[in-house]
Design a protein around this nucleic acid. Structure first.
Lengths: 142, 142
DNA sequence: TCCCTCGGTCCTGTTTTCCAACTTACCCGA
DNA sequence: TCGGGTAAGTTGGAAAACAGGACCGAGGGA
């Protein structure tokens, strides 16, 4: 215990459990219903229940009733949840390049009309950020 | 089972288990030794052993002997491992903005001399990618 | 009426994970 | 030579997480 304090660790404490990011992927792709999310992710239903509840509790999802009779619910992303799209894009791009064999299973298009290949740049100079192109200014030591 | 085929899922199958990304974070920040990685992540030693072994097996890390007598090892990132830096940066930025309260615990500087704030842009038009700014062209349905 | 859907809950057994102590192999200083 | 320290794990037992399937309640449709 008494590990390094870090926003990566904090982020993973919220979305790092198994199935959480896949559930968010589904909602981001427009799949909002419990049964569909369960089917598409492959998570067992009870685990998915606890994951979705946690994501609602921490404010990444909202559970909205979309039908009164019978009561039916759907999950929608909050602003914090939507902000995770950069993480999912980075993960998908990395998976496409280094893990998945063959063609990318999912292809996205940017509003500019071209196939989306995400690129991470420095918000200040707009140059791409390359591995080793950063230095640590300040960091918590455990 | 029989879930959606997707590079996000494939990526998470490799680095999605608890402690894996934190171990990679440490190596990326220059911490290469077992004991230090264990201390800084907070992972228990046995779990860390299996995680590091898996990361070596899938080719994200290499285990190198840096001392013959006694035998001592250190972990270094392969190119695939280094490529994960975009994922970690996205996660850290999201954590800084939406999870961590107060100041970011870790501050990085870009080679341009300014504090690094990563920005995800489209590699083609160089415009920022915003939530909902993409459409799905092709996708596997389970 | 009977069967179906949706959004879960419950139960049971298997896997993982956690935690602390132990091990091996060597170095160092007194 | 004795004791202590470090590095990189192993081991064993308890606790937690997970998988998979049955079940449930409120309604819908034929």
């Amino acid at each position: 215990m008494a590990a390094r304090e870090c926003s990566i660790a904090n982020a993973l404490a919220v979305v790092g459990e198994r199935w959480s990011l896949l559930a968010i992927r589904e909602v981001m792709f427009g799949v909002r219903r419990f049964d569909q999310i369960a089917r598409n992710t492959g998570a067992s239903r009870d685990i998915l229940t606890t994951r979705l509840r946690k994501l609602v509790d921490v404010g990444l999802l909202e559970r909205e009733r979309y039908e009164e009779h019978p009561p039916r619910y759907e999950y929608v992303l909050t602003e914090s949840g939507q902000a995770l799209h950069t993480v999912l894009l980075a993960l998908m791009d990395w998976g496409d390049r280094h893990i998945t064999r063959g063609e990318p299973p999912t292809v996205l298009e940017h509003t500019c009309g071209h196939t989306l290949h995400p690129l991470t740049v420095c918000a200040h100079c707009h140059e791409p950020v390359v591995p080793g192109g950063t230095t640590v200014v300040r960091m918590h030591q455990p």
